[in-house]
């Protein structure tokens, strides 16, 4: 009896997936689907939150009031995006506290790109242009992902994110059209961010253990390599427009595939950064842990006050 029921639930689930019907929180779902989602959505949320740090690093040094306001609102958006995503993951029965603990303990991952340092103002341009550009390529398909709350969160994220890439490109344009020192700053930042950005699409398809199942369940819509290729094809002309040199000697237009051939990512570096050996892994997590721990008394005080107030109100009503 039990097995028949299970099977028919699973069939219904698969049918919904096949028919592009969104899965909603209370629907039955395979445990593995739930797990995959929690892992992916929380990882995504953590990336937004940790991602605030490298860019936040330049808020107080932004070179004009306009840039300062734009950067601050961009980093604030990232906090908002993290919040939308934590909320989506919470619908699967995992608390935000749990997810944050997993981030702090190192159990949960976040995008490795944020383990690289922001060393000059041009990095803020490069992050907006390249990193947000890559993020958008990853994220737009997620607006159609099979899990409803995730898809809806991603619609909000993508809608708000559209200005992020443009502001990055605009910074790069100002620098590239500016003084030689600025152009040099831009090229130097580009050199540092290009390869880590290509790593953002994840390991090669044949080494990506989760891709196949995620594609089948329509959590993921394109493979890592597909997205990486698209990104290169999109960015190379933009770099040319800016007058920047792509730091890849193997980069070449391939007429036959109507796309660029490009050099191989340094996968050893990639796996090392994932494992915690990037230049800023420790700084990033330490900063997050510090904020969380130093905020503990604030969160407790607010709860304590809310409880006192509720008790007083209850007492007043009892009178």
């Amino acid at each position: 009896m039990e097995t028949i029921v299970e099977k028919s639930l699973e069939e219904q689930f698969e049918e919904k997936i096949a028919n592009e019907i969104r899965i909603e929180p209370k629907d039955w779902m395979p445990e593995q689907y739930r797990k995959t989602l929690v892992r992916q959505i929380s990882q995504h949320a953590h990336s937004e939150i940790v991602g605030m740090l490298p860019e936040g690093n330049w808020i107080t040094r932004a070179p004009s009031l306009k840039r300062k306001a734009i950067l601050l609102s961009k980093v604030q958006d990232e906090a908002g995006h993290g919040l939308y995503l934590y909320s989506a993951a919470e619908t699967l029965g995992t608390s935000r506290d749990q997810m944050i603990n997993d981030l702090h303990s190192g159990k949960a991952k976040y995008s490795s790109i944020f383990n690289y340092p922001t060393l000059s103002w041009a990095d803020i341009g490069a992050i907006g242009w390249l990193v947000d550009g890559a993020a958008i390529m990853n994220q737009v398909p997620l607006c159609r992902t099979s899990y409803g709350p995730y898809a809806r969160a991603m619609v909000r994220v993508c809608k708000e994110e559209s200005f992020h890439q443009r502001q990055g490109f605009e910074i790069m344009m100002s620098l590239c059209n500016g003084a030689p020192a600025q152009k040099q700053m831009a090229q130097e930042a580009f050199n540092r961010w290009w390869w880590p950005t290509l790593m953002m699409f994840g390991p090669k398809d044949e080494e990506s253990p989760n891709t196949e199942q995620s594609m089948r369940w329509k959590i993921k819509r394109f493979t890592n390599d597909e997205l990486r290729q698209r990104f290169v094809d999109m960015m190379v002309p933009q770099a040319e427009f800016l007058g920047l040199t792509v730091p890849d000697k193997d980069l070449k237009w391939n007429e036959a595939k109507n796309g660029y051939d490009f050099g191989d990512v340094d996968w050893e570096e990639f796996w090392n950064v994932v494992k915690g050996n990037g230049p800023c892994n420790k700084d990033r997590i330490n900063a997050r842990v510090k904020a969380h721990e130093e905020g503990a008394w604030v969160r407790e005080a607010a709860l304590a006050h809310a409880q006192k107030r509720a008790q007083r109100e209850a007492a007043d009503q009892a009178k």
Binding site: A88, T91, G93, V140, C143, R152, A153, C158, K159
Partner: peptide, 15 residues
């Protein structure tokens, strides 16, 4: 456990 529900996104075409 299930706070986010209902309604389908309207804005997809703009992205």
């Amino acid at each position: 456990r299930h706070p986010t529900f209902y309604e389908v996104p309207a804005e997809i075409k703009n992205m």
